[in-house]
């Protein structure tokens, strides 16, 4: 196990007492989830077929890392 400098040690949080508040703080707020209002497909091939059927173009958001997950 590595010796960790004192200032790098986790600050003492009363996780039991602060649990609900901390969980709520970390979770995204509604205004941070606006982008999820777009009805994202998650498979480019399925989106091709759906676009063909609907007579619409495809909008592809492609990132190194999944745009709906960790990027």
């Amino acid at each position: 196990m590595t010796e960790v400098h004192a200032q790098q040690r986790p600050r003492v949080h009363s996780l039991e007492e602060e649990f609900d508040a901390l969980h709520a703080f970390i979770r995204p707020k509604p205004e941070e989830l606006r982008w999820t209002a777009i009805p994202w497909e998650t498979d480019l091939w399925a989106a091709r077929r759906k676009a063909q059927e609907a007579g619409k173009p495809i909008f592809l958001w492609a990132m190194n890392g999944h745009p709906l997950g960790c990027v």
Partner: peptide
């Protein structure tokens, strides 16, 4: 996510006029 895709004009245009898809391009 916060900047481009939270704009209501972007959300409406992509949702209504396109088939939107998100994928990991790696």
């Amino acid at each position: 996510r916060e900047l481009a895709f939270s704009d209501p004009r972007v959300i409406r245009l992509i949702s209504e006029r396109f088939i939107p898809v998100a994928e990991n391009c790696s």
